[in-house]
Every structure is written in C-alpha cells, then in structure tokens.
Nucleic acid binder design. Sequence first.
DNA 1: AACAAGGGTTTAG
DNA 2: TCATCTAAACCCTTGTT
Length: 370
Amino acid sequence: MTFHGNSRTVLAVDLDYFFAQCEQLRRADIKDKPVVVCVYSGRSKDSGVVSTCNYIARNFGVRSGIPITQAKKILSGNQAAVFLPIDREYYESISERIMAILRTHSTLWEQVSIDEAYLDLTPEANGDLDLAKEIGYKIKIEILEKENLTCSVGIGPNKLIAKMAADSVKPNGLTIVSSEMVRPFLDPMPVAKLVGIGPRTEQKLNELNIKRIGDLARHDENALIAEFGNNLGPHLKHFAMGIDEDPVQQRTTGQFSRIVTLKRNTSSLAFEVELNSLCKDISQKLETRGLRCKSVGIIAISSDLRTKNRSKTLDAPIFTAEEIEETAKGLFRSFFEEGETLVRRIGVKVSEFTTFERFKNDSVLTDFLA
DNA sequence: AACAAGGGTTTAG
DNA sequence: TCATCTAAACCCTTGTT
C-alpha cells in the first residue's frame, strides 16, 4: 500500500544548449569560445538563422532564431567566435545514447524532443521527494560521466511543473517543486514564462490586464473561454494553477514533413528536383517505419514569409516516392492556378498513417522519433 | 448534433 | 535581400450524415 494516493512524482531532463554542447564535445579548441550553431539556407553566404548557441554567445546577445548575419554582427568584435552548420545526425546519435540512459531509471518515460525527456518516478520514489532528488543527481552524474554533457533537471507533481522547474535552473541545475510550492513558484512569474504562452497569447492576456501567472490562475474561466475558446481557455487556467494531468507516456508521431528554401523565388513548378528529393526522404521514412499515409499536403512559404497549405485525403494509403510526388505536384499545380504567389520555401507533409503490415506488432508505430 | 476535411495560427525546441 | 526546420495542438469554416 502506497501513501501517495493520486499524486505523482515527475522528473524532466533538458540537455543544456544541446547542439552547441555536442559541437564542443568534438572540438576541444572551442570549449571557451562563443559557439553558434546555424541553419544555412544556401541562398547566399550567410543566409539562414541561428539554431542555438552556448551561453558565452548568449551573453553577447545571440539568440535562437535570429539571422546568422545579425549574430555575426553581434560577435564581430570577437575573433574567437565559432559558427558551425547544424549536424542533426550527429546530435541524434548522442541523443539516442542519453535517452537509453534515462530509460534505465524508469519504465515510465517519454521523449519529447531530441534533448528533452520526462520520467515518472512515482513507483521509484513512492512520494519521497528526497529520494527523487537523489535519482535526479544520479542521472546528471551518469550523463556527465558517460557522455560529458550537462543537463538541467526539474522534479514536480506533473510534467508542466517538472519542466518549468528545470527551466528555472538552467544551465546545469536541479530543483524540486513540491505540490505545496507549486502556487508560490508559479504565481509571481510573468505569464510569458508559462509553457504554451508565446508572444501572441501574452499580448492578448496583457490586454485583459493579466500580467502574472497568478492573475491568470484567478481569472474568470468563462472570460478565458470567450477569448481563447472551449479547449484553450480552460487549459490556460489549469496550467496557470499548476494542474496538468497529462501522463508520462511515449507518443506516436502523426505526421512527417520536409521543407526546403529555394535558391530563387518562383511562381511556377520550377522546383521538381527539390520536390523529388523531399518526397524520396519522406517515402524512405514511411518505409523504414512500415507505414503508409492517407493524406498528402504541401507547404508553400511566400516571399513575404506567409505560410500556405494545401492537402488532400487519398482514397487509398500510399508510401512510394512516386505516388507522394504525383499528389504533391497536383496540389502545387492547382495552388499556382489559384493566383500569382511568389514562393520562397516549399515543403511536403504526409499524415493519417496506417500500418503497412497488418500483423506486425505495434512497436513500429510507437517508435516515434527520427 | 456529430464528424470529416481543409486551411490557418500559435507554440516549442 | 534578414527572416530554418519539424511536429503538435488548436481554431475556424464548410459540407455531410
């Protein structure tokens, strides 16, 4: 008999400035330099954006998502600054080893991205937060000793609190927020700190005079429903109150997409080579996972950076590059027929998966990442 | 009323 | 030319059952 009733103990792990830290692993000489990991678009020498950077670069003002040219300007006085192209495969290989380590600490785990995971430690800790903290330290030490990487760990009664706890002690931190401390922890924070609240939602909330998470937690639910709808309204209020029932469990991916930036903007189907390559990648991904898709979509990002989508539900599921490409081409053709749109980036998306082999077991489906 | 399909928006890392 | 890439969740509209 356990004494913790319905309450859980959830641990969140977040690798610090992951891509930049991975680069520092294989380049001893850049340990103490500003390191900026870039997504080069190939349009011109330095076109593209910053994916992530280490804290040395952050201290100069470099941030994820800013143009590479801007980051170079910021660091122009710093001879030591290093700009590297993103190398996803390399980071994936390191990520896989770390996720394997994490899985040894709990059977209830969930990988949320290449550098983040949750563990449900309820069975292991049995309500003992000091014990959960010990497990957290063990995890940090093991990742440091085996992979030479630092991470931040947060522990709380649910995923939301565990994640926000981890965020609050980055980098290389560990902290616990007990159920009694949830409201004191959240209430004074600016609403923008709450997971799920970005710039747009922050703006709307500020107009309602909701500045802090505590304000949101106390706000009239119907007023929030009127502003944000039947799902998002109550969801925001619950999150602000620190309530999150979402279980720690492996998710299945419901879509794959690939997108590229074109060398030149176009208003015709002049990107067959690029389109072919995208469809091949996607088909490959479906095939290795034993999946077919019943829906194919295209993404077109215009010269003014507005995103347009077109999609089609098929009569029968498909998986070959040829079939995906034919469908995508048809969608692009009718897209261009609708009117003049200068396209900068193009993408292909597949969804509505069905298993290729009926009797194959579900592990193919649950093998969710990469 | 409930559901499917299609398109757009917002968020996150 | 400053402006990437992948995935999820939600919102709204339209049309069908």
